[in-house]
Nucleic acid binder design. Structure first.
Lengths: 171, 171
DNA sequence: CTATATTTTCAGTAATTACTGAAACTTCAC
DNA sequence: GTGAAGTTTCAGTAATTACTGAAAATATAG
């Protein structure tokens, strides 16, 4: 199916395509990302289109999407006008970027909607109940995100230690 | 647009519909869940179809989907043959269910694919590099999930305390 | 067992999202 | 400037996913 791709990379790429569609990102974007992730060298758009066998314009759109997620790095190679792309090397950084971006897109808007809703004067008992539920949700999300923000600032090494300690901390 | 829904609940329901489509779940399913979440009483499928103005069969499918996520409770009311649905009351429990279910669907398959890929004999240098990257990803995910499993077992209250301490722990 | 209430399935259709190729635009070497 | 190399846009089309109504299946009261 793919050109110039070892069976190992192929499976990885295909898997990420499928997973991509379970998340918000589509198959194409997932595959492009996976390909960049396992590539030792940065790739240009034509190489990607060639390797994954889809159109040049599709690659262009996919890369734009990945850029909007801050998941790819754009660079230029000496004596080459084309744009080369690669996935950041540090998997912890990738993880943080992803979490951060998802927070921005999925959590923040909900939080702001909830804040507005909680300011409204309840018109009746049903509204009162609904607001109670929304308050619970709001508080949970607020706490989780502020914890996340704290953790976010830690160095990977520190975070690793923290995770390893894990539940021991409770005692 | 919706019948018998206060503006407050309407906005909440609409917002969750939109958010739903950013996650894997579709608009309909998001709306049904939101409706159940803010309802003081359990609702039957007809009430849901009526409130949200979509077909009975669509509601049936949506509820099945929510059941597969363990996000709704099914119950029967005395002297009524119909099935009534509600969202669990404890938002922490909901959060855990959601995280758990996503782990099962999005992380576990990836982990198992990575494990397989790491067992393969690399055919060349490119494969060697690819495997190195996959190992990094594998280790990160493994660590994060095992941490998550630990945390998962804690009581909400303990977890709350832990989160409040947050970064103070590092010192 | 029969009649009725309720839920589920599913084939067909509608709506949405993804993808392509051609054209437009941008960049840069000369 | 001009032209070639590279990139993006976008209208049209393909593919996918969501939704409906009718029919089938299931459950229950009498």
């Amino acid at each position: 199916m793919f050109m110039n791709l070892s069976p190992l990379s192929q499976e990885f790429v295909l898997h990420f395509g499928e997973m991509g569609s379970r998340w918000g990102i589509n198959r194409t974007v997932g595959q492009i990302y996976a390909l960049l992730f396992v590539s030792a060298k940065p790739l240009n758009a034509d190489e990607i289109a060639d390797a994954l066998q889809f159109s040049r314009s599709n690659v262009s759109m996919g890369l734009k999407e990945l850029e909007s997620w801050h998941l790819v790095r754009l660079q230029h190679l000496p004596n080459d006008r084309r744009e080369y792309f690669s996935a950041p090397e540090d998997v912890w950084a990738i993880f943080r970027t992803l979490a951060d971006e998802r927070r921005k897109r999925e959590i923040d808007p909900t939080l702001s909607m909830l804040r507005d809703a909680l300011l409204a004067i309840p018109a009746n008992d049903e509204d009162k109940f609904a607001q109670k539920r929304m308050t619970e949700m709001h508080n949970l999300i607020e706490m989780a995100t502020s914890w996340f923000n704290d953790v976010h600032r830690l160095e990977p090494e520190t975070l690793k230690q923290l995770m390893k300690m894990g539940t021991k901390v409770t005692k």
